[in-house]
Design a protein around this nucleic acid. Structure first.
Lengths: 339, 339
DNA sequence: CTGAAAGCGCTTACAG
DNA sequence: CTGAAAGCGCTTACAG
C-alpha cells in the first residue's frame, strides 16, 4: 500500500495541494468553503492520510523532537526521568529521542552527534565527566539545552539540579544526632561536581559537630563500579580497627550492592550501623530495615527541565538555574537513639 | 550560528552541490579528482558540517529510525530490552524511538500513530491486551514490525518470545520435586496469550504429578496492580485453611511486592514456603533467601528481534517466529528437600 | 474563497 | 571528471 500524500487527496477532491494543507492544518478557518473543507477532511480520513513529519520538518525547520541523554539507563533513576520528560514533552507535542552515555564522554559525544544530525530542537542532558567541550559546542551552535541532575559550575547555562551539599550535610547531621559518631561515606570517585558537593556536605557536617573526619571513613569506588568493588569497600568500612557506626551511600546503586554485602554479615542495622542513602529505588525495598534516604523531587525536576527547554526552543532566551530542595526521609535504618 | 548546508560548502569550494554530496557520501570514489575531494572534506570539517538527516530522509524515503514500544518502561525488564535494542540498532546505523504503552491499548495506538507520522522504517513492539487491530493495520500498511515477548496466536507475523508454557511447567515440576505439594500461582489477570500459557503450564505440571489443582491456589491480580492488591493476594495464599507450601510468581514486579509482604510475616523461605519467580531483577537481590527464577535470554531476544526487523526493512520478506528456551536458575528459595 | 509557485536540504539519473 | 535539473512532501507569502 503506497503512502498517501496531500497530492492524492487534492487529486481526489479536485482542489490544489495548498488548499488541502490549509484545511488539514486548520489554517484560514472560515475563509474556506465549508463544503470543500468537509470533503477534504472526509477524503483524508478515507485514505487514512497521515502527515509526513519529515517533509513538514524540512519545510518549517523544526522537528518537534527533543533529545534526552541520561547517565545510565539501567539505573531506575534514569528510566524514571526518561518517562517524566517524555510525558511532559508529549503534552506539548514533542517526541523525545533517548540515549544513555553510560558515564562515558565518548559515547556522550556520539549521542550528541546523532541527535544533531536528526535536527532535534533542543536537548536535556545529564553530562558525564569531561564533557564540557560538547556543551560549549552546543552553546556555539545556539542549540537550546538544559542540564539535568548535574552541571559544571564553569559553564553558564540552564540547569535543574538539587543542592547536593545541603542534602549530604543534612543526612550526616541527622546520623550524628541519632547517636552515630563515626560516620562513613561510600560514594563514587569522580570529578563530577555534584559528587564533590556531596562529599563537601559530608565533611562539613562532621566538622560542625566537632568530629574530626578520618580518611579511612571515606571510600570512593569507580563510577563504572561492579558489585564486588563496592562490597569490598563496605567491608573495609565496617571491619578492622576504628570501624564506622554509620554510613551515607552516595547513590542507590551503591546502596544496593552494599546492603547485599551487609546481608551476608552479622552486622545489625541500625543498632550497629546506621544508614542513609541518596535516592530510593524498589531494589532497596526488600532490605529488612526500611532505609532512610534523601529523596530528590524527580518529577518536578524532569518537568521543569522540559519546560525550560521548551521555553528556549520557543525563543525565550533567558538562562534558568533551578536548584531544588531534597527531603530526608527518615525511616528505621538511620535511627539508633530516640529521644 | 546558521546551520551549514551542502550549498555553503559548494560555494566556498567553488563546485556544485552535487559534487559535494558525492564526496561526502563516498560515492563515485576514484572518479573524482583527489584534490577537489580533499578540499571538500576539509571545508566540510572546517565549517563543522553535519548532514541534515531530515532532508536526506525525505529524499530517499527512509529515516533509519525504528520504533520500540515496551509494555512498561518502569519495569527493569523493559528498560533492559530498550538498551539492547538500541545497541543493536545503533550498530546498524539506526536510531530508535521509544515508547511505553503502560499496558494500555489506547496509549499503544497513540504511540503507533506518532511513530508512523515520524516515518519509522519499522517497529518492535510488546503489544498490550486488545491491540490486535493496530497490528492488523500495520500489516495492511506493509510496515515491517516484529512482536517481542508477546504475540497473538491469531495474527501471523514475526515474533520473538519464550515458551511460557514450558517455562512455567518446568518451574512447578521443580517445586514439586523439591518437596512441595500445594503449589500456588500468583500472576496477572489478563487475556494476554503469554500469561494464559504460563497458567496452562502451571496446571499441566500439577496434573502430571497427580496433584488436583485447587482454585484457591491461583491468585490473579490486575495487570495495573499496586503493591497492596498483590500483598493481599499473597496473604490469602499462605493464610487460612489449606495454605500453599510453594508459589510461582508470574513476574518480577509481583515477586517484589509479594516478597515485601513475606518479609513482614514469620513465614520462612524455603522451609515453609518455596518460591520460583519469572524474571530476575536487582530488586530481588536483597531478599534473605536467594531467589530461584526463570531466566529469559533477554539479550538474545532483543538482538534477534532487531535483526529480524532490519532484515524486513531491507526487504527480506519472510516471516520469522522465534521461540526461545528459558533457564530455570535454582537457588535457595525453591529447595526444601535435597536428595 | 482558491491556486501557482517557490523553497526547505538533500540525492541521483542523466548528460556531457 | 563534473554539473544542471528534477523531485522527495510539505508550507506559506503572494496574487487574484
Amino acid at each position: 500500500m503506497k503512502k498517501v500524500s496531500l497530492k492524492d487527496i487534492a487529486r481526489e477532491v479536485g482542489v490544489s495541494i495548498a488548499l488541502v494543507s490549509y484545511v488539514l492544518n486548520n489554517k484560514r478557518e472560515g475563509r474556506i468553503s465549508k463544503q470543500i473543507a468537509a470533503r477534504i477532511k472526509e477524503v483524508a480520513r478515507k485514505l487514512n492520510y497521515r502527515t509526513n513529519q519529515i517533509a513538514r520538518s524540512l519545510k518549517i525547520s523544526k522537528t518537534f523532537t527533543l533529545g534526552l541523554i541520561v547517565a545510565d539507563i539501567s539505573n531506575p533513576f534514569s528510566s524514571a526521568m526518561a518517562r517524566i520528560v517524555e510525558d511532559e514533552a508529549d503534552r506539548h507535542g514533542y517526541t523525545v529521542l533517548f540515549g544513555s552515555s553510560d558515564e562515558n564522554a565518548t559515547k556522550f559525544k556520539k549521542l550528541i552527534d546523532t541527535f544533531l544530525n536528526r535536527q532535534v530542537d533542543g536537548l536535556i542532558v545529564s553530562p558525564p565527566a569531561d564533557s564540557e567541550d560538547q556543551l560549549l559546542m552546543l552553546q556555539q551552535m545556539d542549540l537550546p539545552f538544559v542540564l539535568l541532575d548535574r552541571y559544571f559550575p564553569t559553564i553558564k547555562t540552564n540547569y535543574v539540579a538539587i543542592n547536593n551539599y545541603q542534602a549530604a550535610k543534612n543526612a550526616v547531621s541527622h546520623l550524628i544526632e541519632k547517636g552515630s559518631r563515626q560516620v562513613g561515606l561510600l560514594s563514587f570517585n569522580s570529578t563530577l561536581y555534584h559528587l564533590k558537593e556531596r562529599k563537601r556536605g559530608y565533611l562539613s557536617a562532621l566538622k560542625e559537630n566537632g568530629i574530626t573526619s578520618k580518611k579511612r571513613w571515606i571510600k570512593e569506588v569507580d563510577i563504572f563500579t561492579n558489585k564486588e568493588e563496592t562490597e569490598k569497600a563496605m567491608a573495609e568500612l565496617i571491619k578492622g580497627p576504628d570501624p564506622v557506626d554509620a554510613v551515607l551511600f552516595g547513590s542507590n546503586v551503591i546502596a544496593g550492592h552494599a546492603l547485599h554485602y551487609i546481608n551476608s554479615t552479622a552486622i545489625r542495622v541500625p543498632e550497629e550501623l546506621a544508614i542513609v542513602s541518596f535516592d530510593e529505588t524498589d531494589a532497596l525495598d526488600l532490605f529488612y530495615s526500611p532505609l532512610s534516604y534523601i529523596r530528590q523531587p524527580l518529577t518536578e525536576m524532569g518537568r521543569q527541565a522540559t519546560r525550560i527547554l521548551l521555553d528556549c526552543v520557543e525563543h525565550n532566551n533567558k538562562v534558568s538555574h533551578i536548584e531544588m530542595e531534597t527531603t530526608l526521609v527518615v525511616r528505621a535504618s538511620s535511627v539508633r537513639r530516640t529521644e
